[in-house]
Design a protein around this nucleic acid. Structure first.
Length: 349
DNA sequence: TAGGCCATCTGGTCCT
DNA sequence: AGGACCAGATGGCCTA
């Protein structure tokens, strides 16, 4: 299949595509870049007819294109009025090239940083799976919904186990993502996780296991601890926040179907316990063991998954219609329930 | 095979 | 001048 050359309006990329130095440059750079990027870049470039575009002004008049169609462009370009462009010397071309290569590297780094941040966000979403990663857009949508739903829990005391909570979470999400979230919220903890907990802590009861887990999984990727610890102090703040902090926020209407949202959430969303639980081990940080809030949940959810007839690494959990990857963490979907039991405690006080 | 998603390159714009 | 940010374009990969 012939690939369509990338050509922006008015540029003269074809002009430069036949330049010998570009060929040289490509071949030498591909080697370097390939080591960095797993050949992605070099494959793209080698297999396509995309010329390296250095900008029309930089290369104008340097070389003629043998393509008929581009011959016209050359003619037009040569008759262009205005200040005469600086002649491109070999040294200048090399400087441009070097600058471009540096800019590309920076851009890659920038995008990697962005993706890392997105990964961190995925980890604190109420449905985290290493194998079944949410897309970028779905991650952002779910994040928005999650914030919205949790703020509803705080403000109106709505149960995170209610259908309303689920609906808020799934609003605007694609069907597969909605299914995933819905499936997660119907599940009990993954047996894999529970066995991990047992290994770590021995014959602990559910609460001790939770505590041990919270202690050993702080959140290195997040700005400041204790992001997700379920400290009693945080939980007790709930009461204070309710009707206090939020009253000060002016309503923030969204006009594009975005859920209503009453300003920034000052209180730590960490009440979900979600953040601290699923992070990598970091022995340098200390977290106060949280109180016995998860007893109810953990003691009632120990389903055995069925894996018959499902792809490797997937399981169908009792009570769920959805087939899920086994590496979905308990913490990913436990949060709402934990919030629920905790809220119950608090509001019953 | 079409469509979704992604990584990358690129040039333009703004800012320091 | 150079870096950060952005949006457009492209090809590769994966899945329904």
């Amino acid at each position: 299949m012939m690939t369509k050359p990338y050509r922006k309006p008015g540029d003269m990329t074809e002009l430069v595509s036949s330049l010998g130095w570009i060929e040289e440059d490509l071949s030498s750079q591909d080697g370097e870049q390939a080591t960095d990027m797993g050949d992605h870049y070099s494959l793209n470039r080698r297999n396509s007819h995309i010329p390296m575009d250095l900008g029309s002004e930089d290369l104008e008049g340097e070389e003629e294109e043998d393509d008929e169609e581009c011959g016209l462009d050359v003619e037009k370009a040569s008759k262009r009025r205005g200040p005469k462009k600086k002649k491109m010397t070999k040294a200048r071309i090399e400087r441009f090239r070097a600058r471009r290569v540096k800019a590309n590297a920076r851009e890659r780094t920038r995008m990697h940083g962005l993706n890392d941040a997105l990964d961190n966000l995925r980890r604190v979403m109420p449905c985290y799976s290493k194998t079944q990663k949410l897309s970028k857009i779905e991650t952002l949508r779910l994040a928005r919904n999650y914030i919205w739903a949790l703020s509803e829990v705080l403000e109106s005391g709505q149960s995170p186990e209610s259908n309303g909570f689920m609906e808020m979470l799934c609003k605007g999400l694609s069907q597969p993502t909605s299914n995933l979230v819905a499936g997660c919220l119907q599940l009990g903890p993954s047996p894999m996780l529970l066995s991990k907990l047992d290994e770590k802590s021995g014959p602990l009861d559910a609460v001790s296991a939770q505590q041990a887990h919270a202690l050993s999984f702080p959140s290195p990727g997040l700005p400041s601890p204790p992001y997700g610890s379920l400290e009693a102090s945080h939980l007790l703040h709930l009461k204070g926040y309710k009707g206090a902090t939020y009253e000060n926020h002016s309503p923030n209407e969204c006009n594009n179907g975005t859920p209503p949202y009453d300003g920034p959430l000052t209180p730590p969303l960490s009440i979900s316990g979600n953040f601290a639980l699923k992070q990598e081990p970091d022995s340098e940080r200390n977290y106060t063991p949280h109180p016995t809030h998860a007893t109810h949940y953990l003691s009632n959810h120990y389903p055995a998954p069925s894996m018959a007839g499902l792809p490797q690494g997937h399981a169908l959990f009792p009570g769920s219609r959805y087939e899920l990857p086994l590496d979905i963490t308990f913490e990913s979907f436990a949060a709402p329930h934990i919030v629920s039991s905790q809220m119950g405690t608090i509001y019953n006080e």
